[in-house]
């Protein structure tokens, strides 16, 4: 698909987007994401630092956006307006970004609260559990402990889905994309919206 001619003038010597998408468009989307993720203030950072910061922010944004597309099993919430608990295991720059993003946001009538647990902990409560890549390396058996808990596990490691994680945030062609293990989700009795599946890479791997 061609970009509108009026917008072609924005074309710059920026990295080529995937699937032949115009570089102008890609740049614009990036900008949007920055703003979405962290508001203003980062535009002045150096490119590499900016890109790095962007990745944390994007992932944090994705984590916060996920509850809109997820249905937890009955009884996961005490009340209809009980908050969605987002738990982060161990240290992560992504976790640092989250408080800014979740402030004041109500999703499906629920607030989102961040809960940070120490590395190696495997909390069986909460609704979303983010396992940073470092934590995944440190305690590879973590995921198995969380099977059938009704917790949506999200990771950022290449083998995350293979180890039984439900959603993996991976970097592909300078973009953070979602990979979903629907089998694991089914097992956790978590329903993922078709919209989410529509924008994700769906894997039906056998959870170990």
């Amino acid at each position: 698909m061609r970009a509108p001619p009026g917008k072609a003038g924005l074309r710059r010597s920026l990295p080529e987007g995937r699937n032949g998408r115009g570089p102008g468009k890609a740049r614009r989307i990036l900008c949007v994401l920055w703003v979405m993720a962290m508001g203003s203030g980062f535009g002045t950072l150096e490119a590499t630092a900016a890109e790095l910061a962007s990745e944390y922010q994007v992932k944090a944004a994705y984590l916060v956006n996920l509850p809109k597309y997820v249905n937890w099993p009955a009884g996961a919430f005490a009340e209809t307006n009980s908050p969605v608990v987002l738990t982060v295991v161990g240290e992560s720059k992504v976790a640092d970004e989250i408080p800014m993003i979740i402030e004041g946001r109500i999703v499906n009538g629920r607030r989102i609260i961040l809960k940070r647990v120490a590395s190696g902990d495997a909390p069986r409560e909460g609704h979303i559990l983010f396992v940073p890549a470092a934590e995944q390396k440190r305690s590879p058996g973590l995921l198995s402990k969380l099977r059938d808990t009704g917790i949506l596990t999200v990771g950022e490691s290449d083998d995350f889905l293979e180890r039984g994680g439900i959603i993996n945030l991976v970097r592909r062609d300078q973009h953070i994309t979602l990979e979903v293990n629907v089998t694991a989700a089914d097992k956790a009795q978590i329903t993922l919206s078709s919209k989410l599946l529509g924008v994700s890479k769906v894997e039906k791997g056998n959870p170990k």
Binding site: M1, I29, K195, L196, G198, V199
Partner: peptide, 20 residues
């Protein structure tokens, strides 16, 4: 309504496909 996920998870191409 069909473009929400594309926006939320930064998939402009998906959005465009929807628009198509």
């Amino acid at each position: 309504n069909n473009t929400t996920a594309a926006i939320d998870f930064n998939k402009p191409l998906d959005a465009m496909q929807t628009l198509t």
